[in-house]
Design a protein around this nucleic acid. Structure first.
Lengths: 183, 183
DNA sequence: CAAAAATGTCACTATATTGAGACATTTGTT
DNA sequence: AACAAATGTCTCAATATAGTGACATTTTTG
Protein backbone atom coordinates (compact mmCIF):
# COMPACT_ATOMS: atom_id res chain seq x y z
CA UNK A 1 0.00 0.00 0.00
CA UNK A 2 1.21 3.40 -0.95
CA UNK A 3 -1.02 5.26 1.50
CA UNK A 4 1.55 5.08 4.25
CA UNK A 5 4.33 6.07 1.89
CA UNK A 6 2.35 9.10 0.79
CA UNK A 7 1.84 10.16 4.40
CA UNK A 8 5.53 9.81 5.17
CA UNK A 9 6.40 11.82 2.07
CA UNK A 10 3.87 14.47 2.92
CA UNK A 11 5.34 14.82 6.40
CA UNK A 12 8.80 15.17 4.94
CA UNK A 13 7.83 17.63 2.21
CA UNK A 14 5.39 19.74 4.26
CA UNK A 15 7.86 19.98 7.09
CA UNK A 16 10.33 21.64 4.74
CA UNK A 17 7.72 23.63 2.81
CA UNK A 18 4.24 23.91 4.16
CA UNK A 19 2.67 25.17 0.95
CA UNK A 20 4.43 22.75 -1.37
CA UNK A 21 2.24 21.34 -4.12
CA UNK A 22 0.67 17.92 -3.88
CA UNK A 23 2.61 17.08 -7.01
CA UNK A 24 5.82 17.33 -5.03
CA UNK A 25 4.43 15.02 -2.40
CA UNK A 26 3.32 12.49 -5.00
CA UNK A 27 6.67 12.63 -6.77
CA UNK A 28 8.54 12.15 -3.52
CA UNK A 29 6.35 9.13 -2.80
CA UNK A 30 7.00 7.78 -6.32
CA UNK A 31 3.28 7.85 -6.95
CA UNK A 32 1.03 9.63 -9.42
CA UNK A 33 -0.96 12.57 -8.24
CA UNK A 34 -4.10 10.72 -9.17
CA UNK A 35 -3.26 7.95 -6.75
CA UNK A 36 -2.66 10.46 -4.01
CA UNK A 37 -6.17 11.78 -4.54
CA UNK A 38 -7.64 8.31 -4.39
CA UNK A 39 -6.38 7.98 -0.84
CA UNK A 40 -6.92 11.56 0.28
CA UNK A 41 -9.89 13.70 -0.61
CA UNK A 42 -7.92 16.91 -0.60
CA UNK A 43 -4.91 18.63 0.90
CA UNK A 44 -6.57 19.02 4.28
CA UNK A 45 -7.44 15.35 4.38
CA UNK A 46 -3.80 14.47 3.76
CA UNK A 47 -2.65 16.95 6.36
CA UNK A 48 -5.02 15.49 8.92
CA UNK A 49 -3.60 12.07 8.19
CA UNK A 50 -0.12 13.47 8.75
CA UNK A 51 -1.12 14.95 12.07
CA UNK A 52 -2.70 11.73 13.22
CA UNK A 53 0.36 9.78 12.13
CA UNK A 54 2.71 12.15 13.90
CA UNK A 55 0.75 12.14 17.14
CA UNK A 56 0.52 8.38 17.07
CA UNK A 57 4.26 8.00 16.53
CA UNK A 58 5.15 10.52 19.18
CA UNK A 59 2.83 9.13 21.81
CA UNK A 60 4.05 5.60 21.23
CA UNK A 61 7.64 6.75 21.54
CA UNK A 62 6.87 8.63 24.73
CA UNK A 63 5.21 5.61 26.22
CA UNK A 64 8.32 3.52 25.63
CA UNK A 65 10.51 6.29 27.01
CA UNK A 66 8.58 6.36 30.26
CA UNK A 67 8.43 2.62 30.65
CA UNK A 68 12.20 2.31 30.51
CA UNK A 69 12.84 4.00 33.83
CA UNK A 70 11.39 5.75 36.84
CA UNK A 71 14.36 8.06 37.27
CA UNK A 72 13.25 11.48 35.95
CA UNK A 73 16.68 12.22 34.52
CA UNK A 74 16.76 8.95 32.66
CA UNK A 75 13.22 9.61 31.51
CA UNK A 76 14.22 12.99 30.16
CA UNK A 77 17.08 11.36 28.29
CA UNK A 78 14.75 8.74 26.83
CA UNK A 79 12.29 11.46 25.84
CA UNK A 80 15.01 13.18 23.89
CA UNK A 81 15.95 9.96 22.13
CA UNK A 82 12.30 9.32 21.38
CA UNK A 83 12.01 12.73 19.78
CA UNK A 84 15.10 12.10 17.67
CA UNK A 85 13.71 8.73 16.60
CA UNK A 86 10.49 10.43 15.55
CA UNK A 87 12.70 12.73 13.54
CA UNK A 88 10.94 15.05 11.15
CA UNK A 89 7.61 13.96 12.58
CA UNK A 90 8.41 15.61 15.87
CA UNK A 91 9.68 18.77 14.21
CA UNK A 92 6.65 19.11 11.97
CA UNK A 93 4.25 18.43 14.79
CA UNK A 94 5.70 21.15 16.99
CA UNK A 95 5.70 23.57 14.08
CA UNK A 96 2.02 22.97 13.56
CA UNK A 97 1.32 23.80 17.18
CA UNK A 98 2.14 27.38 16.31
CA UNK A 99 -0.10 27.59 13.27
CA UNK A 100 -3.25 26.11 14.70
CA UNK A 101 -5.20 28.92 13.11
CA UNK A 102 -4.36 27.63 9.64
CA UNK A 103 -5.56 24.15 10.38
CA UNK A 104 -9.07 22.83 10.35
CA UNK A 105 -10.37 21.22 13.49
CA UNK A 106 -8.66 17.97 14.26
CA UNK A 107 -10.60 14.80 15.04
CA UNK A 108 -12.28 15.70 18.29
CA UNK A 109 -10.26 15.06 21.38
CA UNK A 110 -7.12 13.89 19.63
CA UNK A 111 -5.44 17.24 19.74
CA UNK A 112 -6.38 17.92 23.34
CA UNK A 113 -5.28 14.47 24.36
CA UNK A 114 -1.98 15.08 22.68
CA UNK A 115 -1.23 18.41 24.29
CA UNK A 116 -2.42 17.13 27.63
CA UNK A 117 -0.05 14.21 27.37
CA UNK A 118 2.70 16.49 26.16
CA UNK A 119 2.29 18.78 29.13
CA UNK A 120 2.39 15.87 31.51
CA UNK A 121 5.71 14.71 30.10
CA UNK A 122 7.13 18.07 31.08
CA UNK A 123 5.48 18.30 34.46
CA UNK A 124 8.50 16.97 36.30
CA UNK A 125 10.81 19.68 34.97
CA UNK A 126 9.90 22.08 37.81
CA UNK A 127 10.72 19.31 40.29
CA UNK A 128 14.17 18.93 38.83
CA UNK A 129 14.60 22.67 39.15
CA UNK A 130 13.46 22.68 42.76
CA UNK A 131 15.92 19.93 43.59
CA UNK A 132 18.71 21.98 41.98
CA UNK A 133 19.41 19.14 39.57
CA UNK A 134 18.97 21.56 36.73
CA UNK A 135 19.46 25.30 36.68
CA UNK A 136 16.29 26.76 38.13
CA UNK A 137 16.95 30.19 36.69
CA UNK A 138 15.81 28.83 33.36
CA UNK A 139 12.11 29.07 32.69
CA UNK A 140 10.11 26.02 31.70
CA UNK A 141 9.23 27.70 28.43
CA UNK A 142 12.90 28.11 27.57
CA UNK A 143 13.70 24.51 28.47
CA UNK A 144 10.85 23.26 26.34
CA UNK A 145 12.06 25.31 23.38
CA UNK A 146 15.60 24.04 23.97
CA UNK A 147 14.34 20.47 24.03
CA UNK A 148 12.55 20.93 20.72
CA UNK A 149 15.52 22.54 19.03
CA UNK A 150 17.93 19.93 20.31
CA UNK A 151 15.84 17.32 18.54
CA UNK A 152 15.73 19.44 15.41
CA UNK A 153 19.49 19.86 15.61
CA UNK A 154 19.89 16.10 15.79
CA UNK A 155 17.61 15.67 12.78
CA UNK A 156 19.60 18.31 10.88
CA UNK A 157 22.84 16.60 11.82
CA UNK A 158 21.55 13.31 10.54
CA UNK A 159 20.31 14.78 7.28
CA UNK A 160 23.43 16.83 6.67
CA UNK A 161 25.62 13.75 6.71
CA UNK A 162 28.36 15.78 8.38
CA UNK A 163 27.96 14.16 11.80
CA UNK A 164 28.56 10.48 12.46
CA UNK A 165 25.08 8.96 12.89
CA UNK A 166 26.00 6.79 15.88
CA UNK A 167 27.26 9.78 17.86
CA UNK A 168 24.27 12.04 17.27
CA UNK A 169 22.05 10.88 20.13
CA UNK A 170 25.00 10.90 22.49
CA UNK A 171 25.94 14.43 21.41
CA UNK A 172 22.36 15.63 21.65
CA UNK A 173 21.89 14.34 25.19
CA UNK A 174 25.25 15.69 26.32
CA UNK A 175 24.51 19.12 24.85
CA UNK A 176 20.93 19.21 26.09
CA UNK A 177 21.55 18.15 29.65
CA UNK A 178 24.40 20.65 29.98
CA UNK A 179 22.34 23.39 28.33
CA UNK A 180 19.82 23.14 31.16
CA UNK A 181 22.49 23.14 33.84
CA UNK A 182 23.23 19.50 34.49
CA UNK A 183 26.79 18.28 34.94
CA UNK B 1 9.69 53.63 0.25
CA UNK B 2 7.94 50.36 0.59
CA UNK B 3 10.63 48.30 -1.12
CA UNK B 4 12.45 47.63 2.13
CA UNK B 5 9.22 46.85 3.92
CA UNK B 6 8.34 44.32 1.25
CA UNK B 7 11.72 42.63 1.62
CA UNK B 8 11.34 42.41 5.38
CA UNK B 9 7.87 40.96 5.00
CA UNK B 10 9.05 38.49 2.42
CA UNK B 11 11.79 37.30 4.74
CA UNK B 12 9.29 36.87 7.54
CA UNK B 13 6.66 35.11 5.42
CA UNK B 14 8.98 32.92 3.37
CA UNK B 15 10.85 31.86 6.47
CA UNK B 16 7.62 30.47 7.89
CA UNK B 17 6.31 29.16 4.57
CA UNK B 18 8.62 29.00 1.60
CA UNK B 19 5.87 28.58 -1.00
CA UNK B 20 3.54 31.21 0.39
CA UNK B 21 1.86 33.36 -2.26
CA UNK B 22 3.12 36.82 -3.09
CA UNK B 23 -0.28 38.06 -2.02
CA UNK B 24 0.53 37.06 1.53
CA UNK B 25 3.79 38.94 1.34
CA UNK B 26 2.09 42.03 -0.04
CA UNK B 27 -0.64 41.87 2.59
CA UNK B 28 1.91 41.50 5.37
CA UNK B 29 3.71 44.54 4.00
CA UNK B 30 0.43 46.49 3.83
CA UNK B 31 0.96 46.96 0.15
CA UNK B 32 -0.94 45.98 -2.97
CA UNK B 33 0.34 43.07 -4.99
CA UNK B 34 0.70 45.42 -7.93
CA UNK B 35 3.15 47.54 -5.98
CA UNK B 36 5.15 44.49 -5.06
CA UNK B 37 5.52 43.69 -8.74
CA UNK B 38 6.67 47.20 -9.53
CA UNK B 39 9.65 46.66 -7.29
CA UNK B 40 10.30 43.01 -8.05
CA UNK B 41 10.04 41.39 -11.45
CA UNK B 42 8.98 38.03 -10.06
CA UNK B 43 9.21 35.72 -7.07
CA UNK B 44 12.84 34.89 -7.75
CA UNK B 45 13.75 38.54 -7.98
CA UNK B 46 12.20 39.13 -4.58
CA UNK B 47 13.90 36.08 -3.14
CA UNK B 48 17.26 37.27 -4.43
CA UNK B 49 16.66 40.59 -2.74
CA UNK B 50 15.90 38.74 0.49
CA UNK B 51 19.10 36.78 0.25
CA UNK B 52 21.14 39.87 -0.40
CA UNK B 53 19.47 41.64 2.51
CA UNK B 54 20.07 38.72 4.84
CA UNK B 55 23.71 38.34 3.91
CA UNK B 56 24.27 42.05 4.28
CA UNK B 57 22.66 42.10 7.72
CA UNK B 58 24.51 39.03 8.91
CA UNK B 59 27.89 40.18 7.69
CA UNK B 60 27.46 43.59 9.26
CA UNK B 61 26.49 42.01 12.56
CA UNK B 62 29.46 39.65 12.43
CA UNK B 63 31.81 42.53 11.78
CA UNK B 64 30.59 44.31 14.88
CA UNK B 65 30.83 41.12 16.90
CA UNK B 66 34.46 40.70 15.99
CA UNK B 67 35.38 44.28 16.59
CA UNK B 68 34.16 44.13 20.16
CA UNK B 69 36.86 41.82 21.40
CA UNK B 70 39.92 39.74 20.53
CA UNK B 71 39.10 37.05 23.07
CA UNK B 72 37.72 34.10 21.08
CA UNK B 73 35.22 33.19 23.78
CA UNK B 74 33.89 36.71 23.92
CA UNK B 75 33.78 36.73 20.13
CA UNK B 76 31.76 33.54 20.12
CA UNK B 77 29.34 35.10 22.58
CA UNK B 78 29.03 38.22 20.44
CA UNK B 79 28.47 36.07 17.36
CA UNK B 80 25.58 34.39 19.09
CA UNK B 81 24.06 37.73 20.04
CA UNK B 82 24.55 38.96 16.50
CA UNK B 83 22.67 35.97 15.18
CA UNK B 84 19.84 36.57 17.61
CA UNK B 85 19.70 40.22 16.60
CA UNK B 86 19.45 39.17 12.98
CA UNK B 87 16.58 37.00 14.10
CA UNK B 88 14.51 35.46 11.36
CA UNK B 89 17.04 36.66 8.80
CA UNK B 90 19.65 34.33 10.17
CA UNK B 91 17.23 31.42 10.39
CA UNK B 92 15.99 31.87 6.85
CA UNK B 93 19.48 32.27 5.46
CA UNK B 94 20.72 29.04 6.99
CA UNK B 95 17.61 27.23 5.78
CA UNK B 96 18.32 28.35 2.25
CA UNK B 97 21.83 26.96 2.46
CA UNK B 98 20.27 23.53 2.39
CA UNK B 99 18.05 24.14 -0.62
CA UNK B 100 20.58 25.65 -2.97
CA UNK B 101 19.15 23.54 -5.76
CA UNK B 102 15.90 25.49 -5.63
CA UNK B 103 17.60 28.83 -5.94
CA UNK B 104 18.84 30.53 -9.05
CA UNK B 105 22.43 31.59 -9.15
CA UNK B 106 23.14 34.47 -6.83
CA UNK B 107 24.97 37.57 -7.99
CA UNK B 108 28.42 36.28 -8.76
CA UNK B 109 30.77 36.15 -5.84
CA UNK B 110 28.29 37.24 -3.20
CA UNK B 111 27.44 33.74 -2.14
CA UNK B 112 31.03 32.58 -2.09
CA UNK B 113 32.09 35.63 -0.16
CA UNK B 114 29.39 34.90 2.36
CA UNK B 115 30.21 31.26 2.93
CA UNK B 116 33.90 32.05 2.99
CA UNK B 117 33.30 34.63 5.66
CA UNK B 118 31.01 32.27 7.50
CA UNK B 119 33.64 29.56 7.54
CA UNK B 120 36.24 31.97 8.83
CA UNK B 121 34.06 32.93 11.76
CA UNK B 122 34.13 29.30 12.81
CA UNK B 123 37.78 28.67 12.12
CA UNK B 124 38.76 29.29 15.71
CA UNK B 125 36.45 26.60 17.05
CA UNK B 126 39.09 23.87 16.57
CA UNK B 127 41.55 26.01 18.51
CA UNK B 128 39.16 26.21 21.45
CA UNK B 129 38.84 22.45 21.28
CA UNK B 130 42.59 21.93 21.20
CA UNK B 131 42.98 24.16 24.26
CA UNK B 132 40.34 22.08 26.05
CA UNK B 133 38.23 25.18 26.53
CA UNK B 134 35.36 23.39 24.88
CA UNK B 135 34.66 19.68 24.66
CA UNK B 136 36.81 18.42 21.82
CA UNK B 137 34.81 15.24 21.41
CA UNK B 138 32.18 17.33 19.66
CA UNK B 139 32.64 17.71 15.94
CA UNK B 140 32.72 21.11 14.33
CA UNK B 141 29.69 20.20 12.27
CA UNK B 142 27.70 19.46 15.42
CA UNK B 143 28.79 22.69 17.07
CA UNK B 144 27.81 24.67 14.02
CA UNK B 145 24.39 23.05 13.99
CA UNK B 146 24.02 23.72 17.70
CA UNK B 147 24.94 27.35 17.17
CA UNK B 148 22.31 27.72 14.48
CA UNK B 149 19.60 26.07 16.52
CA UNK B 150 20.41 28.06 19.62
CA UNK B 151 19.74 31.20 17.63
CA UNK B 152 16.52 29.73 16.27
CA UNK B 153 15.52 28.77 19.80
CA UNK B 154 16.08 32.36 20.89
CA UNK B 155 13.99 33.61 17.98
CA UNK B 156 11.24 31.14 18.85
CA UNK B 157 11.36 32.19 22.47
CA UNK B 158 10.99 35.82 21.49
CA UNK B 159 8.09 35.13 19.15
CA UNK B 160 6.29 32.82 21.55
CA UNK B 161 6.06 35.51 24.18
CA UNK B 162 6.55 32.87 26.85
CA UNK B 163 10.09 33.90 27.74
CA UNK B 164 11.02 37.28 29.17
CA UNK B 165 12.70 39.13 26.28
CA UNK B 166 15.51 40.59 28.35
CA UNK B 167 16.60 37.17 29.56
CA UNK B 168 16.67 35.47 26.18
CA UNK B 169 20.20 36.39 25.09
CA UNK B 170 21.52 35.53 28.51
CA UNK B 171 19.76 32.17 28.47
CA UNK B 172 20.92 31.43 24.96
CA UNK B 173 24.55 32.12 25.71
CA UNK B 174 24.42 30.15 28.95
CA UNK B 175 22.82 27.17 27.25
CA UNK B 176 25.05 27.32 24.19
CA UNK B 177 28.36 27.65 25.96
CA UNK B 178 27.47 24.77 28.27
CA UNK B 179 26.18 22.67 25.40
CA UNK B 180 29.65 22.74 23.86
CA UNK B 181 31.36 21.90 27.11
CA UNK B 182 32.23 25.24 28.63
CA UNK B 183 31.76 25.86 32.36
C1' DC C 1 -4.33 -18.74 -14.08
C1' DA C 2 -8.34 -15.66 -12.90
C1' DA C 3 -10.50 -12.27 -10.19
C1' DA C 4 -9.87 -8.31 -7.42
C1' DA C 5 -7.41 -4.47 -5.81
C1' DA C 6 -4.26 -0.93 -6.56
C1' DT C 7 -2.13 2.20 -9.47
C1' DG C 8 -1.08 4.72 -13.85
C1' DT C 9 -2.41 7.54 -17.88
C1' DC C 10 -5.06 10.80 -20.27
C1' DA C 11 -8.51 14.22 -20.48
C1' DC C 12 -11.10 17.74 -18.56
C1' DT C 13 -12.88 21.58 -15.55
C1' DA C 14 -12.32 24.76 -11.86
C1' DT C 15 -9.80 27.63 -9.07
C1' DA C 16 -5.56 30.11 -7.56
C1' DT C 17 -1.57 32.48 -8.58
C1' DT C 18 1.18 35.29 -11.31
C1' DG C 19 2.53 39.18 -14.10
C1' DA C 20 1.41 43.33 -16.56
C1' DG C 21 -1.31 47.53 -18.69
C1' DA C 22 -4.14 51.64 -17.98
C1' DC C 23 -5.50 55.06 -15.22
C1' DA C 24 -6.90 57.21 -10.68
C1' DT C 25 -5.32 58.58 -6.21
C1' DT C 26 -2.19 59.76 -2.74
C1' DT C 27 2.17 61.58 -1.06
C1' DG C 28 6.09 64.43 -1.01
C1' DT C 29 8.76 68.28 -2.83
C1' DT C 30 9.62 72.86 -4.48
C1' DA D 1 -0.56 75.40 -6.17
C1' DA D 2 2.09 72.41 -9.34
C1' DC D 3 4.59 68.79 -10.38
C1' DA D 4 6.69 64.21 -9.99
C1' DA D 5 7.04 59.87 -7.75
C1' DA D 6 4.89 56.26 -5.49
C1' DT D 7 1.03 53.57 -4.78
C1' DG D 8 -3.77 51.77 -5.35
C1' DT D 9 -7.59 49.87 -8.20
C1' DC D 10 -9.44 47.52 -11.86
C1' DT D 11 -8.74 44.59 -15.59
C1' DC D 12 -7.00 40.98 -18.31
C1' DA D 13 -4.31 36.93 -19.95
C1' DA D 14 -1.09 33.19 -18.97
C1' DT D 15 0.25 29.63 -16.11
C1' DA D 16 0.03 26.46 -12.09
C1' DT D 17 -2.41 23.70 -9.07
C1' DA D 18 -6.35 21.00 -7.57
C1' DG D 19 -9.77 17.60 -8.03
C1' DT D 20 -12.47 14.11 -10.79
C1' DG D 21 -13.99 10.67 -14.43
C1' DA D 22 -12.95 6.93 -17.65
C1' DC D 23 -10.26 3.40 -18.80
C1' DA D 24 -5.70 0.80 -19.27
C1' DT D 25 -2.11 -1.49 -16.80
C1' DT D 26 0.08 -3.58 -13.02
C1' DT D 27 0.11 -6.02 -8.66
C1' DT D 28 -1.82 -8.82 -5.34
C1' DT D 29 -4.44 -12.58 -3.82
C1' DG D 30 -7.01 -16.78 -3.93
Amino acid sequence: MSKQKIIESAIFIFNADFSASLDKVATHASVSRRTLHRHFKDRQDLLDACIFEMMKTWQAAMLVAFKNSTDPIKQLEEMLYAGIDCGVKYAFLTKLQNRAEELSALPTGDSEAYTKARDRWFSFIPDLGAKKIINNNLSIAWIRILFTHMIMAAVDALQSGDVAPNTIKENAWYSFRRSIGMD
